[in-house]
């Protein structure tokens, strides 16, 4: 499905964000990408839909190369990849419906999108998705009137109405409270399963990732250092990914849930499991 070979990205100024990444994601697989801040997670998914231009390497979706495309061909390739953002990135002053329908922009001409005359089947699909995401009846609300969780649901609808083969999800829960985070992750998992989508999910919260995904890839300093099932992600592996840290001390502090970071909480949970 998604095939990445030798992907390298060097930013102007010499920062090497990605260093020869090879990665395959088959159809229907939900894959979590973990790693410390600055490891290149965000760069990796932005290289896939070419919001960031890779320096070297190839990317192919369904066997068709994405690297090297330009103009209309690149836009057509982007239609097949839905993207979901950390801060939702909704167009704040447009309604829920307009935000969802903006996912169809790659399919309709300029004037019909300008006049908001989308084909009826797109409007049907949008209503269904809004209903499915639990936002029924909110289609004429403006995006800036919604809560964080509701906005992220709109973001998910916008990505799915593109009829994508692949979902690129960038920290979907980083701006949400723990309960909403789980709801959003559950929604993502269900929708991916319904539509047999491949998905890459960048995520900080390791525990949350382990709860929902089938495969975890660890990225450190632009290289893949772990690739396996959630169960294979041991304390030693976490140290490998996030760097040396006194995990035991973190675990002691981890009792105080409010102060702990999601990372620390995840690691504390792992240790507790292993102790059993």
């Amino acid at each position: 499905m998604l095939r990445i070979r030798g992907l390298t990205k060097t930013y102007r100024g010499g920062d090497r964000a990605l260093d020869g990444v090879d990665l395959d994601v088959p159809r229907g697989q939900l894959m979590a990408l973990i790693g410390p801040s600055g490891a290149g997670k965000s760069t990796l998914i932005r290289c896939v839909n070419r919001l960031v231009e890779p320096s070297a390497g190839t990317i192919a979706v369904d066997g068709a190369a994405v690297t090297g495309l330009g103009g209309g061909a690149l836009r057509a390739a982007r239609r097949r990849m839905g993207m979901i953002f950390q801060e939702y990135a909704l167009v704040e002053r447009l309604t829920v419906m307009e935000n969802v329908l903006s996912g169809r922009l790659g399919y309709v001409g300029f004037w019909s999108s300008w006049l908001r005359r989308f084909p009826q089947k797109d409007v049907d699909a949008a209503f269904r998705l809004i209903e499915r995401a639990g936002l029924g009846g909110m289609h004429d609300k403006r995006a800036d009137q919604l809560s964080g969780g509701q906005r992220q649901r709109v973001g998910i609808c916008r990505a799915l109405i593109q009829d994508p083969a692949l979902l690129l999800v960038d920290e979907p829960t980083a701006s949400l409270d723990p309960k909403t985070s789980r709801q959003i992750m559950r929604l993502l998992v269900e929708l991916c399963a319904e539509r047999q989508l491949a998905a890459i999910v960048n995520i900080h919260d390791v525990a949350l990732a382990q709860m929902f995904v089938q495969r975890i890839v660890g990225l450190r300093a632009g290289r893949i250092v772990f690739d396996g099932t959630p169960a294979e992600l041991t304390t030693g592996m976490l140290t490998e990914i996030y760097g040396a840290e006194d995990w035991a001390a973190t675990s002691a502090a981890g009792d105080d849930e409010d102060d702990a970071t999601p990372q620390a909480r995840a690691i504390a949970a792992r240790l507790a499991e292993e102790a059993r």
């Binding site: 919001l51 836009r75 167009v91 922009l105 300029f110 690129l168």
Partner: peptide, 30 residues
């Protein structure tokens, strides 16, 4: 303008004029 909103519209496969219509215009209207 808020670049994230523009990025999101670009990611849907929108063309240049559509990016302006959906990404920039709503933001600068007021």
């Amino acid at each position: 303008v808020d670049g994230r909103q523009i990025e999101a519209i670009t990611a849907t496969g929108a063309s240049g004029p559509q990016r302006i219509a959906y990404g920039f215009v709503p933001q600068i209207m007021p």
